[in-house]
């Protein structure tokens, strides 16, 4: 390392941030160069003088206590405002579950009502007349059954449709009604 190289890295040398190889090179150069040793000494003195002067000039300065009060007051008001916003959200949050439950029950009831009415009894067209004037009629209808049970904290519900079929013989008198 020559004088130019050392002066280029002088601040890093003072900071102790040179690589190991550069540090060794700088030490070797310093041991044989009085001018660079002088430059290094002067730079250290300058740093010390500036540091001392800045410290001495400012050491009696203290942040006035009202700044702390104002910052804490601003924080309190900010937290208060956010708390109010959270309060509004929280009240909606409290209503969310009951509303969702009510909507589910309404949907369920609507479904039950629809299916109870929906699949109407199907009447099979009259079969060919039987001997004696009667008609054999096959009638099928659906019976919905809604059940629910509780298992480990959960409510499990089920909607079951049972189709019933009735085969009846209509007497001859009834077949003449139409």
């Amino acid at each position: 390392m020559n004088c130019r190289g050392f002066k280029h890295r002088l601040y890093e040398y003072l900071d102790g941030t040179l690589s190991r190889a550069a540090q060794v090179g700088a030490e070797r150069h310093l041991s044989g160069c009085a001018a660079c040793r002088q430059a290094l000494r002067q730079e250290r003195q300058i740093a010390q003088s500036f540091s001392d002067k800045f410290q001495r000039t400012t050491e009696s300065l203290h942040l006035p206590p009202e700044v702390q009060r104002r910052v804490l007051a601003a924080l309190a008001s900010q937290r208060g405002a956010r708390g109010q916003e959270q309060g509004i959200v929280f009240s909606w949050g409290r209503l969310a579950w009951p509303l969702a439950l009510a909507a589910s029950v309404l949907l369920l009831l609507a479904g039950v009502f629809f299916f109870a009415r929906g699949p109407r009894p199907q009447t099979v067209l009259p079969q060919p007349q039987l001997a004696g004037g009667g008609v054999l009629v096959e009638l099928s209808y659906v019976v919905p059954t809604y059940t629910f049970r509780q298992e480990s904290g959960f409510v499990i519900d089920a909607l079951i449709y049972q189709t019933n079929v009735i085969n009846e013989r209509l007497p001859a008198e009834l077949t003449r009604l139409k």
């Binding site: 300065l61 203290h62 942040l63 700044v67 702390q68 804490l72 924080l75």
Partner: peptide, 15 residues
């Protein structure tokens, strides 16, 4: 924490 921030760094920052 805010109070601690002011106490620990306020003077240095002010200077």
């Amino acid at each position: 924490a805010v109070q601690e921030l002011v106490v620990s760094h306020g003077d240095r920052l002010f200077r």
